[in-house]
Computed example of a mutant assay.
Amino acid sequence: MARGIGDRLPPLPLPDLGGRRAVVTGASAGIGRATADALAGAGAEVVLAVRDAGRGDAAAAQIRHRHRGAEVSVELVDLASLVSIADASARIGQRPVHLLVNNAGTGTDDPDARTADGFDLQVGVNHLGAWALTAGLWPALRDAGDARVVSLGSTMATRGRIGPGFGRPTRSTYQSYCDSKLATVVFAGELRRRCLRAGIDVTAVPAHPGWCATAIFDTGGPPAFVTLIGRLTGAIQSPADGAQPVLLAATDPHPGAYYGPTRHRGSAGPAGPARLPEGARKPGIGERLWELSTELTGVALAP
């Protein structure tokens, strides 16, 4: 488990989110927990979509303690299982969803790790699980009005590839993590384009948190010596600081194409516009990912 690092940035000012319902995956710890806490503090009703009920309940109690009167609930979902995702979508989607933050992600150094459906664990959770949840909640998002989907990328998305074998088991966990994070960025961009083309009032925005002291940083992040250098130079930040690009993507009234930290080559600092990874700017890559995601999961998403 990554050791904690104190917050360095002042809290990001958020608009009044009263009357809006937000779903945050992976919200029991790390960036997801920090994101959920900030949204609840701004008045949003927040659904913590988590794998572990005990940790979810503890996070909800702590958020309610920090923000008296906050509306916070817990829903169980395992993004490594399409069945679990479908069940959770049916429960959560009974009411409008104004904001979906696809935060949950996993990193592993086990090349044999698989989802319940046989996908590479990292691609399966980080992208295909988020794809299926977005599809399952699509009616609740589409009908909410002025809805937004935020997807979490990574600085490592710059090394990702979307091509033959995507989503299938691979011997390089480093590469599969990079691939999964490029996919989250490409997915957001393609979803946004399709909604604009169809005249649907849903905006999709990707963001990356830079380098953060979270558990995933230990398994899906840079090598140990890079981590040490980052800690010494201040390039690794707290989950609350890392959540700021996510919150900006979720609430900016005129959202840009991508957000991230603006210092230390995008690894830390105040949130602002970020440069899309080269792989996300390739012609036709969004359409290709859309086809692959539909084919692999059997789950259709048709804005």
Results as ranks from 00 to 15, higher is better:
Ile200Asp: 01
Gly30Phe: 09
Ala29Phe: 07
Lys282Cys: 06
Pro13Tyr: 07
Trp138Lys: 07
Ile85His: 06
His264Pro: 05
Gln94Phe: 11
Val226Asn: 06
Leu12Cys: 09
His208Arg: 07
Gly19Pro: 04
Ser154Trp: 07
Gln237Lys: 13
Ala113Asp: 11
Thr184Val: 08
Ala80Val: 03
Ser238Phe: 09
Ser238Tyr: 08
Arg33Trp: 15
Met1Leu: 13
Ala157His: 13
Trp138Val: 06
Leu137Pro: 11
Thr115Tyr: 09
Ser176Glu: 07
Ala132His: 03
Val149Leu: 03
Ile162Met: 12
Arg193Ser: 05
Gly167Asn: 05
Trp211Asp: 14
Ala147Val: 03
Ala224Gln: 14
Ser293Trp: 05
Arg263Asp: 10
Trp211Gln: 14
Ala243Thr: 14
Ala116Leu: 09
Ala300Thr: 14
Pro206Gly: 09
Pro255Glu: 00
Thr108Ser: 15
Val205Asp: 13
Thr233Lys: 00
Thr108Arg: 09
Asn102Gly: 04
Ser154Tyr: 12
Gly124Thr: 10
Pro277Glu: 11
Ala274Arg: 13
Val123Lys: 06
Gly160Met: 04
Ala130Ile: 03
Pro222Ser: 10
Gly129Trp: 08
Cys212Leu: 01
Thr184Asp: 12
Thr35Asn: 03
Ala188Pro: 00
Pro222His: 11
Leu301Ile: 05
Val123Cys: 11
Gly41Trp: 07
Thr294Asn: 08
Lys282Arg: 15
Thr173Asn: 12
Asp57Gln: 15
Leu301Ala: 10
Tyr174Ala: 15
Ala53Ile: 12
Arg197Asp: 14
Pro222Gly: 04
Ala249Trp: 00
Ala116Pro: 01
Pro283Ile: 14
Arg33Asp: 13
Pro11Asn: 12
Leu133Lys: 03
Leu14His: 11
Thr251Gly: 01
Ser180Ile: 08
Ile92Trp: 08
Trp138Tyr: 11
Ala271Phe: 12
Arg91Ala: 12
Thr219Ala: 13
Ala240Gly: 05
Gly189Asn: 02
Asp16Leu: 01
His264Cys: 08
Ala53Val: 15
Leu232Gly: 12
Val23Gln: 01
Gly220Tyr: 07
Pro283Cys: 15
Arg68His: 12
